[in-house]
Computed example of a mutant assay.
Amino acid sequence: MKLKYVCLSFFKEQKISFFYNKKEERIYFPCPICDETVFLEIESANWFCQACDEGGTLKVLINFSNTGSLSTKKVYNPTKEKRDIRILYKNLLSSTQDEKLKSRFEYFMNKVENLIEYFDSEDKMTS
């Protein structure tokens, strides 16, 4: 079994807020000591917090979970945020009957989508 699936299943099973970045092969999550966002390298299953100088392996995180001392802080997940924005937009659009307002909402959403695409493509070029 790939280490990636072991790591991801740990975070899901423990209900730890996380964001998996496929491109970087990292899992972002709150540090169990100070709550700052840290990442676990999938290839090695190692993590290190620059804020509190704590770190270790997936095994260390498992030990933290066994003592009940894992963080409940939420980690920013850009994929989820993008999905939530689209849902909010669709709900907003469907709740109005004013065609002029709908047109403005559509114009605004197109601008947002173009901006997201720009940053997504810029990320791909720099990696």
Score class of each variant (00 low, 15 high):
N63G: 10
T126E: 15
L101Y: 13
E81T: 12
L92K: 09
R26F: 02
E122C: 09
T126K: 08
L8M: 03
E113N: 10
Q50K: 14
M1F: 11
S17H: 03
K74E: 04
I16F: 02
F10L: 01
F119H: 12
F48D: 09
M109D: 07
K124G: 07
S121R: 13
D53N: 13
K80E: 14
K82T: 01
A45K: 05
G68D: 09
Y20L: 01
K23N: 14
N21C: 00
T67A: 07
L58P: 02
I62R: 10
L58Y: 11
P32E: 12
P78R: 02
P78H: 05
R86W: 14
N66P: 02
L8H: 06
T96F: 15
L3F: 06
E106K: 08
R26N: 08
Q97Y: 10
F48S: 11
Q14H: 08
F108S: 08
K100E: 10
N66H: 12
Y107I: 08
W47S: 04
C34F: 06
K15F: 03
K82M: 01
I42V: 05
K124I: 13
E25T: 08
K90S: 10
S17Q: 02
C7W: 02
I16Y: 00
Y89A: 00
F39T: 01
E99S: 03
K22E: 12
Y20E: 00
S44E: 15
N21R: 03
K102E: 02
F18G: 01
G55H: 01
I116P: 00
S71A: 13
S9P: 10
S121Q: 14
K102F: 05
Y107W: 15
S103K: 09
